[in-house]
Design a protein around this nucleic acid. Structure first.
Lengths: 152, 152
DNA sequence: TTGCATCCGGTACCTGGGTACAGGCTTACC
DNA sequence: GGTAAGCCTGTACCCAGGTACCGGATGCAA
């Protein structure tokens, strides 16, 4: 009947206790056994799973995608299910697109700094400004809602 | 008394009508003149301002930051106010950090694909896995809430 | 002057990823 | 067996950045 208590798991994985239950609700974390009194008792792998979730988030997967990924890994008794490999490949393409995107942005910022333009609005009105508003404002929708990765 | 009506401005800038009012509430867009009946009548620059806002968002600024930036540009009758130039420089650093970050991620994904690892959890348990969970899970908090740019 | 498209303000809701709080029960240690 | 720390459920709230809906008023062209 031994196992890790929720607080231990949360600490070990570096997440908030509430987050454990949130993940459980979201289907990312299997419901653990309980003590007689109803306290959750996690197996040691739970910590690994949490780290995997956090890693996958950093790799640009949303929680829904991570849930899929974990489920796909879990029941691969039959078909390989176009699993991690393929999705990783797709994510890779997205990440690369995002990098390209940010590189354009960085270039633009560099140009803006170099040109010393100091007021966006008046600057935007004249063609001396290096910031390509039209282009940049309606930039690639590219990856549709994934990939905001950390950042909050 | 002529001016653009809100729908025209929204269309011209490619944003939702509601978003105009949202930006007005947020202090990003000056309150325009009104018709006798109370309808907003925007000057042509409003479209430019909206494009600037969208561009700045793509450059990684939050709406609050954009508001600051616009205000800073607006009343520079006196001091230059450590304006756009410096903030652009700061944002540039953030963008570059983000690029580096994503490059690590891309490399990791590439390694995962190449190694053909297909189940995150079992993979994470053994050292054959190229995904550096410990490192990646607690990666740089870096830029605190900016830089999700497009992606929705 | 009629009729329809548009706009008004206000308020409520959405997504994603959590976090906080209240009030009560369990566990662990002395 | 007492007591403090820890955990339970449920519900509400947070952030950013919008979007949707409502009933009513306006604008404009025919």
């Amino acid at each position: 009947m031994t196992g890790l208590r929720s607080g231990q798991v949360a600490d070990a994985a570096g997440v908030n206790l509430q987050t454990l239950r949130y993940y459980e609700r979201r289907g990312l974390l299997a419901e653990p056994d309980r003590s007689l009194g109803g306290h959750r008792l996690y197996p040691a792998e739970a910590v690994t799973v949490l780290k995997v979730i956090k890693a996958a988030q950093r790799l640009g997967f949303t929680l829904d995608e991570v849930a899929d990924l974990l489920a796909a890994g879990g029941h691969r008794h039959g078909r390989p299910d176009a699993g991690l490999r393929q999705r990783a490949q797709e994510k890779l393409a997205e990440v690369e697109a995002k990098i390209g995107d940010l590189q354009v942005i960085a270039g633009t910022l560099r140009a803006a700094v170099a040109a010393g333009c100091d007021d966006l609005v008046t600057c935007a009105g004249r063609p001396c400004c290096p910031i390509p508003f039209a282009t940049i404002a309606s930039a690639p929708p590219a990856d549709e809602g994934a990939l905001d990765a950390d950042s909050r």
